Simulated assay, not measured.
Amino acid sequence: MSTVDPRHPIARRELDAAGIEGAALRESYLRCRAINAAHGKTYFLATALLPPAKRPFVHALYGFARRADDIVDDTAVPVAERGERLQAWCGEFLADLDWGATSDPVSRAVLDTVTRFDIPTSYFVDFVEAMRWDLDVTSYATYAELEQYMWGSAAVIGLQMLPVLGRRDDAVRWDVLESHAIALGTAFQLTNFVRDVGEDLRRGRVYLPQESLDQFGVDLERLRRGVVDEAIRSLLAWEIERARGLYAKARPGLALVHPTSRDCLQAATTLYGEILDEIEHNDYDVFRRRAHVGAGRRAAVGLSGLRGALRARRHSVPEPNPPTPRS
């Protein structure tokens, strides 16, 4: 039974526009779409601003990442068992990726997306390795160490997305566009880390670098008490500014993607950036409340983005093919 009614006009139109044929493959993309709709509120909204022909492929990439995350973060299951599950699923996925075929209902859409856009398999290998770290590594001594983790858990996701989003024109150097994608993926991840300090602590993890904690005189026990004092405010303010620096580095890249993809990225960047504003508005209390952008604000950003996206589609020019990506 389909996780999304295949007769739903939007879902059907997306699959038709993307040229996705065959009952099994269409069902796989529908599953990924349902995963994104259920868990990726901001990402799903942003994806809806893309032309219908691009959306299924973003849903597929999201579904892949979410599948691994769910295995790692299932704290009801012992760590050893989670490790076995992750090893089994990721091992099967990487083998299927090498083989070029799969029976897995989520992986089928991912493999199709990889093939259509010639996405390097190394990005998926690096992502899987980062997910393995989450089972064994509970803290990071330096920001440089955290960056190594974020390469696999976030930066490569931005790189996976680039062939789907497309370049503005042939004058845009692919390596320049990649640098902006890496910065944006890392900014999203760092925003999550600041927002989810309390939640991650309950899972036994600390994603704020130890060198940052030491700089402001914050130890693990102080974090666990969950009392927002000046030291913790200063620590979080420091990491918020680091994230904002990454958003600033990524922002010029928005003008370099194809016009029909810009409003998607702009919406995601705006809404995720405003999570940082909400943390400040909540007096840095990341222990008792989870900062989020309200439904009204998300709707306003989405509506504004939709107007821009429709204009871009009316005046769009053909997308240049990306150069052969690095493997």
Rank of each mutant, 00 (worst) to 15 (best):
S2W: 07
S2P: 13
T3I: 04
V4Q: 08
V4E: 05
P6I: 12
P6M: 13
H8I: 04
R12M: 10
A17E: 11
G19R: 05
E21H: 12
L25Y: 04
R26F: 08
Y29K: 12
L30T: 07
N36G: 11
N36F: 06
A37Y: 07
A38H: 09
T42Y: 03
F44E: 11
T47H: 07
L49T: 09
L50K: 09
P52Q: 12
P52R: 12
R55F: 11
R55I: 13
P56Q: 14
F57E: 06
V58L: 15
L61T: 03
F64R: 00
D69P: 01
I71P: 00
I71L: 08
V72S: 03
D73R: 04
D73Q: 09
D74W: 02
T75K: 05
P78G: 11
E81A: 12
R82F: 08
L86G: 08
W89Q: 07
C90L: 07
C90Q: 04
G91I: 10
E92G: 13
D96K: 03
L97P: 00
D104E: 08
D104Y: 04
V106T: 14
R108Q: 14
A109R: 02
A109Y: 01
A109T: 12
L111Q: 01
R116D: 12
R116N: 13
D118C: 14
D118N: 10
T121F: 05
T121R: 08
S122L: 14
D126F: 12
F127I: 05
F127K: 02
E129C: 11
W133K: 05
W133M: 15
D136S: 10
T138P: 02
T138F: 08
T138H: 15
T138K: 12
G158E: 00
G158N: 03
L159S: 06
L159W: 01
P163G: 15
V164C: 07
L165C: 07
L177D: 00
I182A: 03
A183C: 04
G185E: 00
G185W: 00
A187F: 01
A187Q: 01
L190P: 00
T191Q: 03
T191P: 01
N192A: 06
F193H: 14
V194H: 01
V197G: 02
G198V: 09
L201R: 07
R202F: 04
Y207P: 01
L213W: 04
D214T: 14
L220G: 14
E221C: 07
R222W: 09
R224S: 13
G226R: 06
V228E: 02
E230N: 12
A231T: 06
S234V: 06
L236N: 03
E239H: 07
I240A: 13
A243L: 09
R244K: 08
G245D: 14
K249R: 13
R251K: 10
R251N: 09
P252W: 13
L254D: 04
L256S: 02
H258N: 03
S261F: 03
C264P: 02
L265C: 11
Q266G: 05
Q266T: 14
Q266C: 09
Y272E: 04
G273L: 12
L276W: 02
D277Q: 06
N282K: 05
N282F: 07
R288E: 08
R290P: 00
R290A: 12
A291L: 06
R297Q: 11
V301N: 00
L306K: 10
A309W: 07
R314A: 13
P318A: 14
P320A: 15
P322T: 09
P323N: 13
P325W: 13
